[in-house]
Every structure is written in C-alpha cells, then in structure tokens.
C-alpha cells in the first residue's frame, strides 16, 4: 500500500504552483494513495529490452526555413493580458528583494 502523506501532497502542489488548504491536502492524500497503488499494476509487466515509446506519428525532426511572418499585432496579442503597460505584460516582482 502506497501512502502519499499530506506533506508530500503540499510539496507537489507547490511544484505545480497550486495553492491548497490543509483540508484539501488530506482529501487528495487519500485519493492519491489508491490511484498510485493502481498504477503499481504496471510492475507486473516485464519490460526488459522494451524501448519507451517516443513518437507516435513516426515523424522525424521536422525543419523549416526561419522566415519572419506576421502573426498578430502587439495590441491584439495584449487583449487577453490581465495587466499590461507600455506594450508589455505586467506582473509583480519576479526577481530581487522585497
């Protein structure tokens, strides 16, 4: 039986940048343990010398010339930005001190 404790849940929640409450962490902890247990079924399968699937459409590297093309204007692009200033997307401090 796999156990994913609330500490681990909170850690992975932070990794995926998801704020969660103590209560949510407890609910997820219970659910995750049974789901991960289910995945452990894969250990039954002998995969010695089996390569991992890496492509699906049998595509090789697809290359093209690097040509500048018009996509959309800056104003158009910024239409969906929650906050913008002088043609840039605006967010609070990313780096540096408080």
């Amino acid at each position: 039986m796999t156990t994913i404790d609330t500490k681990t849940v909170k850690h992975i929640a932070f990794l995926v940048r998801l704020g969660i409450s103590e209560e949510e962490a407890q609910t997820f902890s219970g659910q995750f343990s049974s789901i991960i247990d289910y995945f452990n079924m894969l250990n039954e399968v002998d995969t010695t010398n089996v390569p991992p699937a890496s492509d699906i459409a049998n595509a090789e590297n697809v290359l093209r010339e690097d040509v500048v093309q018009h996509s959309m204007s800056r104003e158009e692009f910024l239409k969906n930005a929650p906050q913008s200033e002088r043609g840039y997307i605006k967010v609070p401090t990313v780096l540096g001190e408080e």
């Binding site: 992975i12 995926v16 995750f32």
Partner: peptide, 18 residues
C-alpha cells in the same frame, strides 16, 4: 490556479508532477 481549476484538474496535475 487554486481558484481557477476544479478538483479533478488539480488532482491530475499533481499526480502528473508526482
């Protein structure tokens, strides 16, 4: 992401990161 995602989405992206 806390307010915007429902429980199933939260659950799946956490399991994916795990």
């Amino acid at each position: 992401r806390r307010e915007g995602f429902g429980d199933e989405v939260k659950s799946r992206i956490m399991l994916g990161a795990y």
